[in-house]
């Protein structure tokens, strides 16, 4: 699904990712943990193609294509989704309208037929219900006046409607209370299948109790310093990231 080789990413001339290798197979869920400033969010933005995140070396193959060749919206249409740590507000733009415009833009780019508003509303309502979100949110402007938790759940609604091949969740758990966290995890678990992959960026082991990862990676200073199964996450929770220094020394 995703094959990253020797990836280097610079932001404002400063190298943040310094030779990262990562392979995520179809249906796998990988967790990426690591201390602040280790480059976790940068990785997410670089994969999504955000301006200012300059790939200086390496390659990324996504679903058989060279991901780095594609524009941001082409990556989305190809099946890449990034749930933002801080979802953006778009005043005056109705949430339902936004989501449908996005879905149809992607479908159009893939040569698929556009979804009519009835079919669309039905899907969205189901997703909202599953995430215990009020339908009134559809009529509100995108993320405007949403609480932190609502914004994060709204990202999962988008994820569920857009049905990507690979979803990167950037600290989707931060700022969520335990009930909201469970809802988000359930939402993600419902979407897991043998073809859809996930990269879950998180600070805390907590989320991984609900989203069982196939692999856990520790990012440190722009590289993957350690990989393992879910027990690695538990160890980090107990011992913190201090072992990284000793491992490197």
């Amino acid at each position: 699904m995703l094959n990253i080789k020797n990836l280097h990413v610079a932001v404002g001339g400063e190298e943040i990712i310094k030779g990262l290798d990562l392979e995520v197979g179809p249906g796998e869920l990988h967790a990426i943990m690591g201390p602040n400033g280790s480059g976790k969010s940068t990785l997410g933005y670089a994969l999504a193609g955000r301006d200012g995140y300059e790939v200086t070396d390496g390659s990324v193959e996504f679903d058989g294509r060279d991901l780095l060749e594609l524009e941001v919206e082409q990556r989305a249409a190809a099946g890449l989704f990034l749930a933002l740590q801080y979802p953006v507000e778009i005043p005056g733009v109705n949430n339902a309208y936004f989501l449908r415009a996005a879905l149809n833009a992607q479908r159009k780019a893939r040569g698929e037929e556009e979804v009519d508003s009835m079919a669309f509303l039905k899907t969205v309502r189901e997703q909202l219900k599953a995430l215990k979100m009020d339908e009134a949110l559809l009529k509100r402007a995108v993320n405007e006046g949403f609480s932190g938790g609502e914004k994060k759940r709204n990202e999962i609604v988008q994820l569920a409607v857009l049905q990507p091949k690979l979803a990167i969740l950037d600290e989707t758990d931060s700022g969520l209370d335990i009930d909201a966290l469970k809802l988000v995890a359930e939402g993600v678990n419902r979407l897991r299948d043998e073809n859809r992959s996930f990269i879950v960026i998180t600070h805390y082991q907590r989320l991984l109790e609900y989203l069982v990862p196939d692999r856990v990676h520790v990012l440190s200073d722009g590289r993957i310093a350690e990989s393992g199964d879910r027990s690695l996450a538990q160890r980090l929770e107990r011992e913190g990231y201090a072992f990284l220094d000793t491992a490197e020394a």
Binding site: A48, G49, R50, D51, E71, V72, E73, R75, A76, A77, F81, L82, L84, P87, V88, I90, P91, G92, V93, F98, L99, A101, A102, L103, A105, Q106, A109, A141, V142, Q158, L162
Partner: peptide, 20 residues
């Protein structure tokens, strides 16, 4: 970026934001 990462191209994104 947010709009584009959801699949809208730049002009569609600007139009959407201006419309809002």
């Amino acid at each position: 970026f947010y709009c584009q990462s959801r699949g809208l191209d730049e002009e569609e994104a600007v139009a959407l934001i201006v419309d809002g």
